[in-house]
Design a protein around this nucleic acid. Structure first.
Lengths: 107, 107
DNA sequence: CGATTGGTTAAGCATGTACTTAAGTATTGC
DNA sequence: GCAATACTTAAGTACATGCTTAACCAATCG
């Protein structure tokens, strides 16, 4: 079982690249083959496969090969985890502001 | 005006490091000086300052120096932007599943 | 004033990242 | 069977990242 922080490292890193975000965006609209993912990107196919590997290592994407075609799909669970991390920090920040507001009211 | 994608690049990159997430976490609880941010981290002060620079470049953190102390604070707006990006991809993914479900029902 | 505190700057280094081209391996269509 | 398709693997390269130590500066304390 991979620890929480390592997962966040990988998912944030995976999403820090515009080509990989474009791939995630494409996959949010439905499954795609490797060449379909590559088509809008101005880079070689091996480069796309390397990005795909990063996405798979992060857990954001899964894939399976049937015949000579590899079909990729988004696994939104990893997205949910980073969403949760962010939401929690925002909540802490906001509750601190609330306490500060109440404190000032009482003065 | 920095474009949307470049902001996402920087914010995701900034959050992809556990030390920088620890700093954001600390700042979600309230402002802190550079040495307060450094205290729980096992690294030199210059290393912490470099991480802080990455956080500032991303817009996640702002700071100002008074006397010899630099006070850092979280700016949650950048967090809101990445949260929004993620939420939108999840929505697209879910609405596709919905349409797929309706389609199967109709068969 | 002289020492300490809090931070900054510069330089160097090991490792990681994002590509590339070249060459290969299975399917599948004709 | 032969060629085209859809990847896959390997190797190389340029640049970025995450640290380090050493030296520095400016505000404050005694």
């Amino acid at each position: 079982m991979l620890n929480q922080s390592a997962v966040l490292d990988r998912v944030f890193h995976a999403l820090a690249d515009p080509s990989r975000r474009a791939m995630v965006d494409r996959l949010s609209r439905g499954t795609a083959s490797v060449s379909e993912l590559a088509e809008p990107l101005r880079m070689s196919l091996p480069a796309v496969v390397q990005h795909l590997q990063v996405l798979q290592d992060s857990g954001l994407v899964t894939s399976q090969k049937v015949g000579r075609v590899r079909t990729c799909r988004l696994d939104p669970e990893a997205l949910t985890q980073v969403e949760g991390w962010i939401a929690q920090r925002k909540r802490t920040w906001e509750s601190r502001l609330d306490r500060l507001g109440h404190f000032l009211e009482e003065q």
